[in-house]
């Protein structure tokens, strides 16, 4: 059974291809889809590549936000000045995503739509409050990433829609950012636990505002507003972080799998907050 391959060059050609092949799969970087097809976990009549549609690529800045085309590769994000300058958190998460080759191929839109609990960019995008443009031939809607991802591999994307843009608000200046990933090894690892953090420290050394997101400890990225609230107004001291860590361990909902047990994930999700002590010594953006 031969599959069709379509390489649309405009959005119009893409809509046309989708109309002809309603069961066609959208092929971005291929680093996830082609693995699933090989394993017999994805079936499709056609592969519709998003590789050659200029509207879906590139990074632009304006209106207090950074707009990222979904077919932008991870490497392009790393090389982009505005990402380096304004979105260090996203940059850090991409730096440790997959391998160099995977970063050259894989795209931000692909990482989002795959909706893996371990997706490296997702905790960062949650913390940054990213919003996603979902476009169909009929029009466009914008949803927060938190509402976009429903569960492992599940999103609110309708059959006629594509993810056409990622809008990341530019964070207020004066923050520190850290993406902390625990894998089974130090590179080419799938997160066993990950945590993204962006924090604004007041002049008197207490937390002004903090946003946190955890990966691999629940069906989707875990955010814990009660922990953020607890930390706001307090100094990032060992005692405070230990106490907050216990709240985190209680708040997350990990599972056992071949990579690690739930108990370990739960414990580390809390303890990893201690990494924020390092953050205090780091660069302020």
């Amino acid at each position: 059974m031969k599959k069709e391959f379509i390489l649309p060059k405009t959005l119009e050609e893409l809509w046309e291809a989708r109309a002809v092949h309603p069961r066609g799969a959208l092929l971005a970087g291929g680093t996830d889809l082609l693995v699933r097809i090989r394993a017999g976990r994805a079936d499709s009549q056609a592969l519709i590549s998003l590789d050659r549609i200029p509207d879906l690529r590139g990074i632009s800045t304006g209106d207090g936000e950074i707009f990222i085309g979904p077919a932008t590769t991870h490497q392009q994000l790393l090389d982009d000045y505005s990402v380096q300058k304004h979105l260090p958190l996203l940059r850090q998460s991409v730096e440790v995503l997959g391998s160099p080759q995977v970063r050259h191929m894989g795209t931000l839109g692909g990482n989002i739509c795959t909706a893996s609990p371990a997706g490296d960019t997702l905790p960062a995008l949650y913390v940054l409050g990213a919003r996603l443009d979902l476009r169909s031939p009929q029009g466009c809607r914008t949803v927060p990433i938190k509402e976009f991802i429903e569960g492992p591999g599940k999103t609110v994307l309708r059959k006629d829609e594509i993810l056409s843009g990622i809008r990341v608000p530019m964070p207020d200046p004066g923050f520190r950012a850290g993406y902390h990933k625990v894998g089974q090894r130090k590179a080419m690892a799938i997160a066993v636990v990950s945590m993204a953090c962006q924090v604004w420290i007041n002049d008197h050394g207490t937390v002004g505002r903090i946003r946190l997101g955890w990966g691999s400890v629940g069906p989707t990225v875990k955010t814990l507003p009660e922990v953020e609230k607890f930390l706001e107004g307090r100094p990032l001291s060992l005692e405070v972080l230990r106490e907050a860590g216990q709240m985190v361990s209680k708040g997350v909902t990990p599972i056992d799998d071949v990579r690690a047990g739930a108990a370990y994930r739960r414990l580390v999700a809390g303890r990893i907050l201690l990494r924020l002590l390092d953050l205090l010594r780091k660069e302020v953006f």
Binding site: F5, L7, L27, G30, T31, L34, V35, L47, S49, D51, Q75, G98, S99, P100, Q101, V102, H104, M105, M188
Partner: peptide, 24 residues
């Protein structure tokens, strides 16, 4: 895509030929 043995350069950039199809 877990080992890099199939690495080729595409426009000078290292990519995995086991995770690319001819059309790309």
């Amino acid at each position: 895509g877990e080992c890099g043995a199939c690495t080729i350069l595409v426009d000078g950039e290292s990519r995995l030929s086991c995770l690319m199809v001819a059309g790309q």
